[in-house]
Structure formats: structure tokens, C-alpha cells
Write a protein that binds this DNA or RNA. Structure first.
Lengths: 106, 106
DNA sequence: ACGACACGCAACTTAGCGGTTGCATATTGC
DNA sequence: GCAATATGCAACCGCTAAGTTGCGTGTCGT
């Protein structure tokens, strides 16, 4: 993920508190069906389904059909990619800060 | 930034490719006026102004008036906060993975 | 003082998101 | 087979975001 074009969809998926909460609940690595994720979220099952669709579309989560229920699980590679983008910006900034400091002290 | 509630606005600000591009151009630590950021972005000055307003609202950027132009500069603390949130999810997942592995091998 | 420059404010249009409701479908268990 | 469960699909409403256009204001340079 080098360009902003590639990073934006992932951040867009992370931009909703409901979706962040879903990710937090999936962060333990256990795949869960929709109903299990809908209970306690004060939302309709359909709303949760849509949010999971967004997360799946951004590659942050995987879907797998198991009988009559579909299991969703976290996909940590994409989380890592988002972190990479932020790392690059932060690193570039710290490099610039370092050069500035060196220039001032010279 | 411990809860999803606090993290979402920052990610929402990062959700737009135009805003990410603006952050990339500000990542060298040099404060720039709006016109300098608008040139080459294929957008109107007003559109860029709005995006900078969003970034400023999320605390990702600072505004400073200098004569007839307003200078925008990156504010790396917030970038670090977003990274922290992603780190927590990733860490939790890796912990879960570690436990799972230990359980399987046992 | 005056023109050019950089910007802010406000109204408007358009498109997409979050959410709900209603209905159809496949699966499980008895 | 039948009721209950878990889900998918589609239409619809309300709201906000993105972007443009038009106009007004302060500032710089000559």
C-alpha cells in the first residue's frame, strides 16, 4: 500500500464506530455468525450485515458459509497494511524533523 | 484512543484519497498555503479548503494565518494515535493466534 | 490608491451512506 | 413434513459529504 489511492478504501471501512466495534469483537480470532455480532449492538441484523459487507469489501474480514450461518473472521493483513501507510507518513515526517534539527544546529 | 468511538473520527478524516494525498504532501513538515496544495490536485480551491477543514477538525493538521495566506501543517500526534488503535487490534489478534497455536500443539 | 492575490462564507446540486422494513430462501431439529 | 432459525435481496427514507459557483474581504506590491 504505497499510494493514497490504495489506502483510502481501508480507512473508509474503518471510519464507522459500528464497524470498529465489530472489528474489536472479531479481534480474538474467533469466527462468528451475523446474529452473534448483532446481539448487543442495538442495531438490526440487516444493518450489521451491511457493515460486514463493507468490511468484507475492504478485505478486512473474510466470509465463510457454514450450514445455515455465515461466519465472519478478522483478516489481519489488511490491518497491517493500514498501519504501514501511517508508518510511512510518520517516518517521512520524522526524517524531515531530523534534517530540520540538524540544519538548525549547524 | 482506547475505544472505537474515539478512533472513528480520525479514520473518517483519513477515508478520502484527496485528504490522504494532502497529508502526504504535508508529511515533509513544511507548512503550505491552500493555493500551493490546490495546484496539481485537479480540484477547486474551495474543495481543498473543505478537505483541510475536515483534517483540521480531526486534529490531523494545524492552521495558522500568515498575512494573506493560511498555512497548514501536519500534526503527527494524531497519526500516532491512529497507529496505536491499529496496533491494539493487531496485538490482540496475535495474542489470540499465539494461544490457539499453543492449544493445538498441546 | 489600485489591481492582483489568497482566502472565507453561503447557497446549491448530486451522490452515497446508514438504517429500516418486507419478503423470499436455505438449513436445522423434531 | 414442519416450525424455527439464519440469512440474503431489494426498495425506500433521511441525512451528510463532496464539489461547484458566486460573491465579499483582507493583504501584498507597485
Amino acid at each position: 500500500m504505497r499510494s493514497a489511492e490504495a489506502a483510502a478504501p481501508v480507512f473508509a471501512a474503518l471510519a464507522d464506530p459500528t464497524r470498529l466495534a465489530l472489528l474489536e469483537r472479531l479481534a480474538d480470532g474467533v469466527p462468528r455468525p451475523i446474529v452473534a455480532l448483532a446481539t448487543g449492538s442495538a442495531l438490526t441484523r440487516q444493518a450489521v450485515t451491511k457493515h460486514l459487507g463493507v468490511l468484507s469489501g475492504a478485505g478486512l474480514v473474510t466470509r465463510r458459509r457454514a450450514g445455515r450461518e455465515t461466519l465472519y473472521a478478522l483478516r489481519p493483513e489488511r490491518v497491517a497494511e493500514a498501519r504501514t501507510w501511517l508508518d510511512e507518513v510518520a517516518e517521512q515526517w520524522e526524517d524531515a524533523l531530523g534534517r530540520l534539527k540538524a540544519h538548525v544546529e549547524a
